[in-house]
C-alpha cells in the first residue's frame, strides 16, 4: 500500500484562513478576533493518511470543518483532483465537494439524530444524492454489515440503544454511504475505550484498503497518530509548525514544539517515566496570539528575532518542513543549527 507518491495530490489546501469574532460591542461589531486558522496549506495524496496533531485551540478541528465547509472559510482554496471547490466558486460545487469528502465526528452520540433509526441515519445521505429510498436502505444494510454490525439486529435500533463503539461504527458507515474518496476523522476514536478503540482502528484500516480511501486523521493522541498516519502535520495556535513523513517526524522532530509534544506523552513502560515536563504553562489564548513565532513565549530556544518575525514554513530535509527560525540560515537567529545537528 505504500506506493510511491503519485505526482498530483488528491486534496490540495491552500492558505486556509478563519477568524471568529469574539465578543461584540453595542452595535454588533466584533471587539476581537479569534485567529482560529491562519494560513494553513497542505497536500494529501490518494490512499494516504495525513495525521493532524496539536493541542486544544490549535485549530485542527476548525480546519476539518472548514474543509467540509460546515464553517465558511474567510480565505483559502480547496482543490480535489485539481478542481477548485467552495469559497468563491459559487453554490453548486459544494454538493459535489461533499460527495468527495465526508467526516466522522468525535462525539458518537451527538453525531447521530436520536429520533432516527440507524437505518434512516445511514440511508439519509444517499437519498440526498438521488438514490431511491429502497436502494438507499439496501445500501445501509450492506454498510452496516461491512462495519461489523449485524444488519438484522441493528438496523431498526436507535442511537441510545448502542454502545459508544457501535455508534462510531454507524457513523463510519454513514460517512461511507455516499462513497467519498476522502474521509476526515476528527478525533473519531478519542472518546472510545482503549479496547474498543483498537477494534475501530482496525476497522478503519480495513475500510481504507477496501474502499480505496484517503484519510485525514485528526487527533491529540500522538501514539495513535503515529500508528495510523503516513504523513503528520503539527499545528499550534492556528498555524502549521511542522509536517513530514511519520517516521522522520517522530524520530527527529524539527520544531521545538513537536519535540515538546512528543516528550510530553506519558511513558508506555515503567522504564521510561518522565523526569520533568518539557514545557511550562498552558497554550496561550488564540485571541491575540503572540507576535512573531506564536510558540516563542514557551520555546526554550527563543531569541529576539522569534518575537519579531513570523517564521515561514520551509523544507528542512527530505520531505520534512518546519516553521522555525532556528533551522533557517538567513533568519537572523544567532545560533542556527542544521538538521544534522538536531538530536534524534
Amino acid at each position: 500500500m505504500n506506493t510511491p507518491t503519485p505526482s498530483a495530490p488528491l486534496l490540495q489546501v491552500l492558505d486556509l484562513k478563519k477568524h471568529f469574532p469574539a465578543g461584540r460591542d453595542f452595535f454588533g461589531r466584533p471587539r476581537q478576533w479569534v485567529r482560529a486558522v491562519e494560513g494553513v496549506s497542505f497536500d494529501v495524496h490518494r490512499g494516504r493518511t495525513l495525521g493532524i496533531v496539536g493541542e486544544s485551540g490549535c485549530g485542527k478541528s476548525t480546519t476539518a470543518r472548514l474543509l467540509m465547509h460546515l464553517i465558511e472559510p474567510d480565505e483559502g482554496r480547496i482543490r480535489i483532483r485539481g478542481q477548485a471547490f467552495g469559497h468563491g466558486v459559487g453554490r453548486h460545487p459544494l454538493t459535489a465537494l461533499r460527495k468527495h469528502m465526508q467526516m466522522v465526528f468525535q462525539d458518537s452520540y451527538a453525531s447521530l439524530n436520536p429520533r432516527l433509526t440507524i437505518e434512516d441515519s445511514i440511508a439519509f445521505g444517499p437519498q440526498i444524492h438521488g438514490v431511491a429510498a429502497n436502494a438507499a436502505r439496501a445500501l445501509a444494510r450492506d454498510l452496516l454489515d461491512r462495519v461489523g454490525l449485524k444488519p438484522d439486529v441493528f438496523i431498526r435500533r436507535y442511537p441510545h440503544e448502542l454502545s459508544g463503539g457501535q455508534r462510531q461504527r454507524v457513523n463510519i458507515a454513514r460517512a461511507l454511504a455516499i462513497r467519498p474518496e476522502i474521509v476526515i476523522l476528527d478525533e473519531a476514536v478519542s472518546a472510545l475505550d482503549k479496547s474498543v478503540q483498537a477494534q475501530v482502528l482496525n476497522l478503519l484500516a480495513e475500510l481504507k484498503r477496501e474502499f480505496d480511501l484517503t484519510y485525514l486523521f485528526i487527533s491529540h493522541d500522538l501514539n495513535v497518530v503515529q500508528y495510523v498516519s503516513d504523513e503528520v502535520m503539527v499545528m499550534y495556535l492556528g498555524q502549521v509548525v511542522e509536517s513530514g513523513p511519520v517516521a522522520e517526524l517522530y524520530s527527529r522532530p524539527l520544531h521545538p514544539y513537536t519535540r515538546a509534544l512528543l516528550e510530553s506523552v506519558p511513558a508506555q513502560t515503567p522504564g521510561e517515566r518522565r523526569q520533568h515536563a518539557v514545557l511550562e504553562g498552558d497554550p496561550p489564548n488564540p485571541i491575540a496570539p503572540p507576535a512573531g513565532c506564536r510558540f516563542h513565549p514557551r520555546c526554550p530556544h527563543a531569541e529576539p528575532v522569534c518575537a519579531q518575525q513570523v517564521p515561514a514554513l520551509r523544507r528542512v530535509t527530505g520531505q520534512q518542513v518546519a516553521a522555525c527560525h532556528r533551522l533557517q540560515p538567513d533568519s537572523g537567529y544567532s545560533r542556527v543549527i542544521t538538521f544534522e545537528e538536531l538530536p534524534a
Binding site: 470543518r65 467540509m68 460546515l70 459544494l94 454538493t95 461533499r98 460527495k99 465526508q102 467526516m103 465526528f105 462525539d107 451527538a110 453525531s111 447521530l112 439524530n113 432516527l116 441515519s121 439519509f124 445521505g125 440526498i128 444524492h129 457513523n171 454513514r174 460517512a175 454511504a177 455516499i178
Partner: peptide, 19 residues
C-alpha cells in the same frame, strides 16, 4: 453534530429542518 453531519452530506435547509 448530527445536523452538521447531515449538512456534510449535502442536504439543503428544507430537508435538514424536516428530517
Amino acid at each position: 453534530d448530527f445536523v452538521d453531519a447531515a449538512r456534510a452530506t449535502g442536504a439543503g435547509a428544507f430537508t435538514l429542518i424536516r428530517v
